[in-house]
Simulated scan of single mutants.
Amino acid sequence: MTFTVTVQPSGRSFSVERDEPILAAAIRQGIGLPYGCKDGACGTCKSRLLEGRVIHGVHQHKALSVEEEEGGFTLTCCAAPQTDVVIEARTVAGAGEFPVRKMPTRVTTIERPAPDVAVIKMQLPANDPLRYHAGQYVEFILRDGSRRSYSMANAPHTQGDKPWIELHIRHMPGGKFTDQVFGGMKERDILRMEGPFGSFFLREDSTKPMVLLASGTGFAPIKAIIEEMQFKAIARPAVLYWGCRSKADLYLHDWAIQAAHDIPNLTYIPVLSEPKPEDAWTDRTGFVHQAVMADLPDLSRHQVYACGAPIMVESAQRDFVAKCGLPEEEFLADSFTSEADKHGD
């Protein structure tokens, strides 16, 4: 049995198999809906159910509360239709543009720019570049079938004749995948991955000034977006705020300084929340989203790209909209939800 999902206000329709989440069917058919984690944890795919009935799978209450569900909202990533349904959701131009594919990848280099961060370059099949938007992510398929998501840190055009992607991976002690990365992974290891996924990428139809907001390894997709801006000579004003605990956590600090030097319309502002005495830090301190608010109290004409820890993304979205006048639809985010975030409320 299949059901029909209609998306308003675009009017686009697509079919969904019985017990299949709406989002999975949309991705399979190239329909561009907004989404992030695909696991009911981030809330990016939250939409209004206008007609019909769905059953929700497991999800976090912070992503969709009981009150919101009773009020007619749904998470498309874990909502399976029980009838034909109509949802209200922004369609994201380009989100379904590139086919989702499975492919093998080979580790070519592993660097450790910080004690708990690995920058890994992965070789893709020869003459077969991965087509994606800067800001999107791939999922690694582990031996037991579980998956781990990481954003590409290089823009698509950098792949060249020998396709490759760059990933920034923070060690999460006890993590099934990151323990492997920081323990036994070595050059020439082969992994299996699938992608691209996600609706977090540059909206090129906008001319608004941009705030690029990153915490920790949330810098990875922001780096790809900056490379894309430079490659396409996008002249919109952009300010990069990168928040970390200490200076060592700014693992590509020199890269960001150089990018701001090379791109006339880009400014770089690093912010440390817990600088160490040996950092001799004289620049900005505190929470990174509050640094944005201090500098830009009026965000009503801006567009924000935020990526990193869920607490940072949630705080920024709440405060930028409520206190700085940012239109809700201009807050674009990729919340780096860990497995603990996905399975604990």
Rank of each mutant, 00 (worst) to 15 (best):
residue 2 T to E: 13
residue 5 V to M: 11
residue 6 T to N: 09
residue 6 T to K: 14
residue 11 G to N: 10
residue 11 G to M: 11
residue 11 G to I: 09
residue 12 R to V: 15
residue 25 A to W: 03
residue 26 A to G: 09
residue 27 I to E: 00
residue 34 P to H: 04
residue 35 Y to M: 05
residue 40 G to L: 12
residue 45 C to N: 07
residue 53 R to C: 09
residue 57 G to S: 04
residue 61 H to E: 12
residue 63 A to F: 03
residue 65 S to Y: 15
residue 65 S to E: 15
residue 69 E to P: 01
residue 72 G to A: 11
residue 75 L to T: 14
residue 75 L to A: 13
residue 79 A to R: 08
residue 82 Q to Y: 09
residue 82 Q to K: 15
residue 82 Q to M: 14
residue 83 T to E: 12
residue 83 T to K: 12
residue 85 V to N: 13
residue 88 E to I: 01
residue 90 R to L: 08
residue 93 A to G: 03
residue 97 E to C: 09
residue 100 V to A: 11
residue 114 A to C: 04
residue 116 D to I: 05
residue 117 V to D: 02
residue 120 I to Q: 01
residue 121 K to G: 00
residue 129 P to E: 10
residue 132 Y to N: 03
residue 132 Y to T: 01
residue 134 A to I: 01
residue 136 Q to N: 09
residue 138 V to N: 15
residue 152 M to D: 10
residue 159 Q to T: 00
residue 161 D to E: 15
residue 166 E to L: 10
residue 169 I to C: 02
residue 177 F to H: 10
residue 179 D to N: 12
residue 180 Q to H: 01
residue 182 F to M: 04
residue 184 G to D: 08
residue 187 E to D: 04
residue 190 I to T: 15
residue 195 G to W: 10
residue 196 P to K: 11
residue 200 F to Q: 03
residue 200 F to I: 05
residue 202 L to E: 06
residue 203 R to V: 07
residue 204 E to I: 02
residue 204 E to Y: 02
residue 205 D to C: 01
residue 206 S to D: 13
residue 211 V to S: 08
residue 222 I to C: 03
residue 222 I to R: 00
residue 224 A to C: 08
residue 225 I to P: 04
residue 230 Q to F: 04
residue 230 Q to W: 03
residue 236 R to P: 08
residue 237 P to Q: 06
residue 238 A to Q: 00
residue 238 A to L: 02
residue 244 C to W: 00
residue 256 A to W: 11
residue 257 I to R: 05
residue 258 Q to H: 11
residue 264 P to R: 12
residue 264 P to Q: 11
residue 268 Y to C: 13
residue 269 I to L: 14
residue 271 V to A: 08
residue 278 E to K: 13
residue 279 D to S: 06
residue 282 T to V: 10
residue 283 D to M: 11
residue 286 G to R: 06
residue 286 G to K: 05
residue 296 L to K: 15
residue 298 D to T: 14
residue 301 R to C: 07
residue 303 Q to N: 09
residue 305 Y to F: 14
residue 307 C to F: 01
residue 308 G to Q: 00
residue 311 I to D: 10
residue 311 I to Q: 11
residue 316 A to F: 05
residue 318 R to W: 10
residue 321 V to P: 09
residue 323 K to C: 15
residue 324 C to M: 08
residue 324 C to S: 10
residue 326 L to T: 12
residue 327 P to L: 12
residue 329 E to M: 07
residue 336 F to T: 01
residue 340 A to K: 14
residue 343 H to C: 06
residue 343 H to F: 08
